[in-house]
Amino acid sequence: MPPRPVEKHVHPRGIFSRFKGNLEAIAIGVKYFFDPKRSTLIYPKEYIKLREGYRGFIVLVKNKCISCSSCARICPAAAMKMVKVPVTDPKTGKQRIKKFPVINYNRCIFCGYCVDVCPTEALYHVPYHDIVYESMEEAVTDLESFQKEPEYKTAKEGLPVRYIVDEVKGLVKIRVKKEGGEKK
């Protein structure tokens, strides 16, 4: 059945509606005062352990890279650049120039195009997103640091939690393990 318009009207205010409305508003306020059903994240004592598949920081697996430059070409923010590196060919033992991507996190918008466009899955997302750089230069990775997963300092200080959708409370915090799956 396709969408169809339905005419609606504002309910007029009755004689007691003002009285009733006030009582209802105060009652719901009192109800939540005694049972707030809150799910606040007490950061940094707790931190959200994001799901696998979250588009967080990007890491390069160098030996998978085929230097196709697709990632640099599709990057909407021009954050990814190819650098030329001399490598030794394992088969022939000859020296030659190969291109590898590096990323500038000052520019990155975490759209994940590069990861999706990579034909050999040489790039992957780490599922965390809150990392502090002390300077602008630090956020520009070179080939070495692009291969390492960036240091996630919050994970050392806090307890990992995850939010799951609940019918009554909306979001419910559950504790999860630092590494891997969920904890009971």
């Binding site: 306020g29 939540y32 005062f33 707030p36 059903k37 809150r38 606040t40 007490i42």
Partner: peptide, 12 residues
């Protein structure tokens, strides 16, 4: 109070 009704923690 406002925080509790609003499902927050408030000053902490």
């Amino acid at each position: 109070t406002a925080a509790r009704v609003q499902r927050r923690i408030g000053p902490y």
